[in-house]
Design a protein around this nucleic acid. Structure first.
Lengths: 226, 226
DNA sequence: CGGCGGATTGAGTGCTCTCAACAGGAGTGG
DNA sequence: CCACTCCTGTTGAGAGCACTCAATCCGCCG
């Protein structure tokens, strides 16, 4: 599935300044294999990366080696909304599946955002949505139980994918490993496994061969606020 | 202590459009008593609130009644950086101490931010800092132990207050109750108490009569990455 | 077939919570 | 000025959610 949303808009706006003197558009895209690091956190970078295809994570490692996933990046997502304001990438980005991405020039992007109302609106929506997701994540980590966090993650991903028409009859491609879920929700893989097992037994979801089906979305929803 | 930073800049910029036809500047400020709700999350609001004096929290309640503090607001802080993009307040704001605040008109604020480079820079810095704090909070909640979270909170507040010259020889006014600390860090008040007791016994901090002194900042720092 | 990444499972542990009860201080009304 | 109440801090016993640390298994791929 190709990325829609902001990515499409930006590409349509044709703002790839730093690379635009090179010939074919296709070359602007880069690929990263599954499980590889796509970007390394670094100082100074004039580029704004966008995921065109595949799933990725924004991650941070503690000195102890523990990993926390700050957010999942789906096709069309800006790596970080803040990147428009900062001239550096703050966190590593790791591919979940094979990932296709491209980078935009920040200065050019900023001009476009300010100049074109439809791009600005799209960008602002993006900002707000990302902030909202982070707030909910804080609620999850701070005050919700493991099964509530997992239920919410599933529903959140569903609704994000639905925007991209990637959900058919409550079923969608689910490339996350249990370690991804664990590291995103402040849990451990074995415990995630246990909860997912319970979800399956209670016929809330079906999850096999990287395909997730929501069998009882209503019950999942109710579960969040128990 | 009066608020500096963004608040000062905004006031100096004189952008209080919706109220500017009323006579004395002092009237633009509102007060809220300690422990009271300052703002309620609501749809549609053209105003951008700023804390001029006192401490407040941005909070969210779960249906179960559990509370999560999303951030602490110190003098000079915008209630939410996102508020410039959204036309509503997303979360309740509760006063910790008595709070003095004022509201700016979003449209006017936006114009000023775009028009004045120094205001834009200040705003961008604010955005980035807030994002960074939220990322760290997610790391805390997801992957750090209670004592590490508390150590980090103390150090973070210290450095934020230091900007306002509110720290004298490692000592500053600390109005937070243990329930605030607990609800901010995903813990419970009795457990926070236990950890603070340990901190005191190990001579890391001194905390009495709403006054906090950092006795061994180096050790607190080291503790975070254990 | 061997090896790797990942899923599953289990036993044992511990960090943190829940639920109390109680104490002290600060304000408040009588 | 005292009784009273509301907060807040403190402390303890007991419980449980989730972790740690394995071991094992499975599917896939070279």
């Amino acid at each position: 599935m190709r990325g829609l949303g902001l990515c499409r808009i930006l590409i349509d706006a044709g703002i790839e300044a730093p690379l635009s003197n090179r010939p074919p558009v296709a070359q602007f895209e880069r690929n990263a294999a599954a499980r590889r690091r796509v970007f390394r956190a670094k100082e100074q970078s004039g580029s704004v990366p966008v995921i065109c295809d595949g799933w990725a994570t924004v991650v941070e490692y503690l000195p102890s080696g523990r990993r926390q996933i700050l957010s999942f990046l789906l096709p069309g997502d800006l790596v970080s909304t803040n990147i428009l304001f900062e001239n550096r990438i703050c966190h590593d980005v790791e591919a979940v599946t094979a990932v296709c991405h491209r980078t935009f020039d920040r200065a050019g992007l900023w001009e476009t955002v300010v100049a074109r109302p439809e791009v600005l609106e799209s960008f602002v929506k993006n900002c707000v949505a990302e902030k909202h997701r982070h707030d909910e994540l804080i609620l999850d980590l701070g005050r919700r139980k493991a099964k509530q966090r997992i239920a919410r993650l599933i529903l959140e991903l569903t609704s994000r994918l639905a925007v991209h028409r990637a959900v058919r009859s409550q079923t969608f491609n689910f490339p996350l490993r249990q370690t991804h879920v664990a590291d995103a929700l402040g849990l451990t893989a074995p415990y995630v496994n246990q909860v997912l097992k319970a979800f399956r037994k209670r016929r809330l979801i079906k999850l096999e061969k990287r395909s997730l089906t929501i069998l009882d979305g209503a019950k999942l929803h109710r579960m969040i606020d128990e």
